[in-house]
């Protein structure tokens, strides 16, 4: 869909306003969420402001800035961002996989699996390189944090076995 600019030179693609629209929606949601916050009794707040006031004030500024950004985009449309290739979307999917594996199996299983798959996804073709990396790195980092920094990691299949 095309919107003719007031100057009447070149049509502006409405897609350039998606980002300002998203920021506007975010700001409005925050303002709405702020309005749902509890009010503090006047004897505590005194001459200061209610806890909801500051986030609302921030979002009001944000809305002003978005208006300026929209004008800028209207006058000088930003160049189209090319869609990323599969390694990027695959990497984002791996972050989701890491969440699932950490919650339902073990954080270190999650790290090892994600490292291995990320390595392959990004172009490594030698299985043994990806495998070694995925095993050695988490084990080394675990031993360092466990023995030197005395950090206890969350319980899972492997850590249950290690901690007993």
């Amino acid at each position: 869909m095309q919107v003719p600019p007031s100057g009447g030179t070149a049509p502006v693609n409405i897609r350039v306003f998606i980002i300002p629209a998203l920021i506007t929606a975010f700001s409005l949601v925050v303002i709405w969420a702020s309005l749902q916050l509890d009010e503090s009794p006047p004897m505590i707040v005194g001459d200061s402001m209610q806890p909801r006031a500051f986030p609302m004030f921030l979002m009001a500024i944000n809305l002003l800035l978005v208006a300026v950004l929209s004008i800028q985009f209207y006058r000088h449309p930003p160049r189209k961002v090319p869609l990323e290739r599969y390694p990027t979307w695959g990497s984002i999917a791996l972050l989701a996989l890491f969440y699932v594996l950490t919650v339902y199996a073990d954080m270190f299983i999650g790290i090892a699996v994600v490292m291995f798959l990320m390595c392959m996804l990004w172009g490594e073709r030698r299985l043994w390189v990806a495998g070694t990396l995925a095993v050695v790195t988490p084990v080394a980092v675990f031993l360092l944090f466990d023995s030197v920094l005395r950090i206890r990691f969350p319980r899972g299949l492997l850590t249950n076995w290690y901690y007993g």
Binding site: M115, C119, E124, L133, A134
Partner: peptide, 16 residues
């Protein structure tokens, strides 16, 4: 150092 090796290590260090 190839990026397919470097960045998975960064991932592990980040989360741990």
């Amino acid at each position: 150092v190839p990026t397919p090796i470097l960045w998975p290590v960064v991932f592990a260090l980040s989360v741990i």
